[in-house]
Design a binder for these strands. Structure first.
Length: 318
DNA sequence: CTTTAGACGAAGTATTA
DNA sequence: TAATAATTCGTCTAAAG
């Protein structure tokens, strides 16, 4: 596919000099009317996103299907549905049921293709706008946004977004991107900011995983530790302690089938107590998006099956 | 009054036949 | 596809601090 140049981890590190994300050209023109940036080389339209005002302008491609548009108003998404957003049926007959002449057929065919393309464009831009809205509220990094956008674009190209709420698909893309970056977030945390039900979002996640044929590493408890710890203002020492606990839990074989974020929560809870930076179960449960009950159960298991007395020594000896 | 602990059925998930 | 097992959730009760 034509997106082949930028693979799974987004396109590049967040950089502020202007460069086309698609072809790398530095010749970026500014459309004074719309405020859009256009790559003069490949015609890519780069919009700053409309909803938030973070310092980053970020880059999403609405074009890569047709590689022209070097002059005049770039064929932006706005231009796409001018007056012709009707659907065109796929039958070979006209309104009276008569068969169409070959030349007519060819003409209609071209119309249909054009029509489909504009629809693709529309769902793309809608989705990317929504994606950016959610990402802003979650304050995720730009790299992650781009990865999410890439996932979303692939989904649209493969027609996977049909039948699902735009917001659900966008949320799912962010969720999966965060997994790719090994900075997973609990699904519920993302759902909170999406205009869709948890059910729909997880449905979209499944669809994407299945149809996109891409490896989305499963979150492990350890991946959650830094984020949770930061939100709880726990020191790096406590983090190391928690990770050590998780290592042992894994060796003890009590992690299988358990919710990773619940596990991370409990480990931090124990580590906090051991290290003298205690947080309540309530606090921890909140940032981990699990219930206190879950924190308790995991915590009980950890203290029961693990010998935790020597952990401090073990850690300081490292 | 807050935190912790435990019990119960409901609900969503993963595994197996 | 349907049944089964394991897990988490929500809510309630109660003890401890």
């Amino acid at each position: 596919m034509s997106t082949g140049t930028n693979e799974k981890n987004g396109m590049r590190e967040g950089r502020e000099d202007l460069k086309c994300p698609e072809c790398g050209s530095k010749e970026i023109l500014r459309d004074p009317v719309r405020g859009e940036l256009i790559c003069s080389n490949c015609g890519l339209v780069i919009t700053d996103h409309l909803v938030d005002m973070g310092p980053e302008w970020r880059a999403f491609t609405h074009e890569e299907l047709e590689k022209r548009a070097r002059v005049g108003a770039p064929s932006s998404f706005r231009f796409a549905d001018k007056g012709l957003s009707t659907t065109i049926s796929w039958s070979d007959r006209d309104a009276h049921g008569r068969k169409l002449s070959p030349s007519k057929r060819a003409q209609i065919y071209r119309l249909r293709r054009w029509n489909v393309r504009t629809m693709v464009k529309r769902s793309l831009t809608d989705g990317l706008i929504e994606l950016n809205r959610i990402a802003s509220q979650l304050s995720v990094s730009n790299e992650l946004r781009e990865t999410a956008a890439l996932i979303y674009r692939k989904a649209v190209e493969k027609r996977l977004t049909r039948g699902y709420p735009v917001s659900a698909m966008a949320a799912a893309a962010i969720y999966l991107a965060s997994r790719l970056h090994r900075i997973p977030r609990p699904l519920d945390e993302i759902v909170e900011h999406a205009k869709a039900s948890r059910k729909d979002v997880s449905k979209c996640v499944r669809v994407l995983i299945r149809k996109l044929q891409q490896d989305f590493p499963r979150p492990t408890a350890k991946h959650f530790v830094p984020r949770f710890a930061a939100e709880l203002n726990l020191s790096p020492y406590i983090q190391r302690l928690a990770i050590e606990i998780l290592d042992r839990a894994e060796k003890a074989g009590i992690t299988a089938g358990k919710d990773p974020s619940g596990l991370a929560a409990a480990a931090l809870y124990v580590a906090g107590i051991l290290g003298g930076e205690r947080r309540t179960q309530r606090q921890i449960a909140e940032v981990a998006h699990v219930t206190e009950v879950t924190v308790r159960n995991r915590y009980k298991e950890l203290t029961k099956k693990l010998n935790l007395k020597d952990i401090r020594n073990l850690l300081s000896s490292k």
